[in-house]
Simulated assay, not measured.
Amino acid sequence: MIDHERDLAHVREATERLLNAAASLDNAAAAEPSRLPGWTRGHVLAHVARNADALVNVLQGRPMYADAATRDADIERDSGRPLDVQLADLRETADRFQAAGAEPADWSRTVELRNGVTDSASRIPFRRWVEVALHHVDLGVGHELEDLPEEFVQREIDFLTERFKGLESVPATVLRADDGRGWTTGGTSGGISVMGPATEFLGWLAGRRDGSTLKTEGGPLPELPPL
């Protein structure tokens, strides 16, 4: 069972780590490229802030974003701000998200995100945790997938393998972690086995690593659709 209150606490902790890391930058470093193609660190910070507002919208029954073009324009608009403005925005929007999460609500209700995707309201704090944790890695400031909490790694692999399950464009794939854990994903045809550390699975599934260190049997590493 999803514990949204526990996940809200995880979000708070992950946000503090991100803020502390971002505070070590300066304006020039914030303008440098991040690990996401085409985005500076400023783009990443702006996106994390705007995502908090978007998820508040979701929790309060409003559209996540006005539309895709507005979402992209807002990130571009905010990407070049001075670092102190970025940090203040990150903290203020994080506080708004926590306040929205503390409001009395039916956490079993279904909410709508982007592109018609729906989910349980109880999963929204975890989705926010994902945004904060992975984009912290994307900043390229020394925080790696291997530094993420084990609970996060397990749950995000669970989530992503389930997301790709049933897609016939992805061969049936079994993931076998070095520590004995296993997952299945993909369609019904194929039969690929992939072996390696769980953090490498996470990097591949989340589009953060190319999977070149993973070992496969039965064929090459499947190509995954973009998230």
Rank of each mutant, 00 (worst) to 15 (best):
Thr70Leu: 08
Gly80Pro: 13
Arg77Asp: 10
Ala88Gly: 13
Leu45Thr: 07
Met64Asn: 09
Ala46Trp: 00
Ala29Thr: 07
Asp72His: 14
Ala69Trp: 09
Gly38Asn: 06
Val85Ile: 13
Glu32Asp: 12
Ala88Glu: 14
Asp67Leu: 03
Val85His: 08
Leu36Ala: 12
Arg50Asn: 10
Pro63Asn: 06
Ala66Pro: 03
Val85Glu: 15
Asp78Ser: 11
Ala88Asn: 10
Thr40Lys: 11
Leu45Asn: 04
Gly61Leu: 09
Asp89Arg: 15
Ile75Cys: 01
Gln86Val: 01
Arg35Tyr: 12
Arg41Ser: 00
Val48Lys: 04
Asp78Cys: 08
Met64Glu: 11
Ala52Thr: 03
Ala73Thr: 05
Glu76Asn: 01
Ser34Gln: 11
Leu83Asn: 02
Ala88Ser: 14
Ala30Leu: 15
Asn27Cys: 09
Gly61Val: 02
Arg81Asn: 07
Ser79Ile: 08
Val85Met: 12
Asn51His: 12
Ile75Glu: 13
Asn57His: 15
Arg71Asp: 00
Gln60Phe: 00
Leu55Lys: 02
Ser79Tyr: 01
Ala29Cys: 01
Thr40Glu: 07
Leu45Lys: 04
Trp39Ser: 03
Ala54Trp: 10
Pro37Arg: 09
Ala73Leu: 03
Glu76Gly: 01
Asn57Cys: 05
Ala46Met: 00
Ala28Leu: 13
Ala66His: 10
Thr40Arg: 14
Glu76Cys: 00
Arg62Asn: 09
Ser34Ile: 08
Thr70Trp: 11
Val48Pro: 10
Glu76Gln: 12
Ala66Lys: 13
Pro37Gly: 09
Glu32Lys: 14
Val48Leu: 14
Thr40Asn: 11
Asp78Val: 00
Thr40Cys: 09
Thr70Met: 08
Leu45Ser: 03
Arg77Met: 04
Ala66Asn: 01
Leu90Pro: 00
Gln86Lys: 05
Asp84Glu: 15
Ala30Lys: 09
Asp67Arg: 11
Val44Glu: 05
Met64Leu: 14
Glu76Ile: 05
Glu76Ala: 15
Gly42Lys: 06
Leu90Ile: 04
Val56Gly: 09
Thr70Tyr: 08
Arg62Glu: 14
Ala30Met: 15
Ser34Ala: 13
Asn57Gly: 12
Gly61Asp: 05
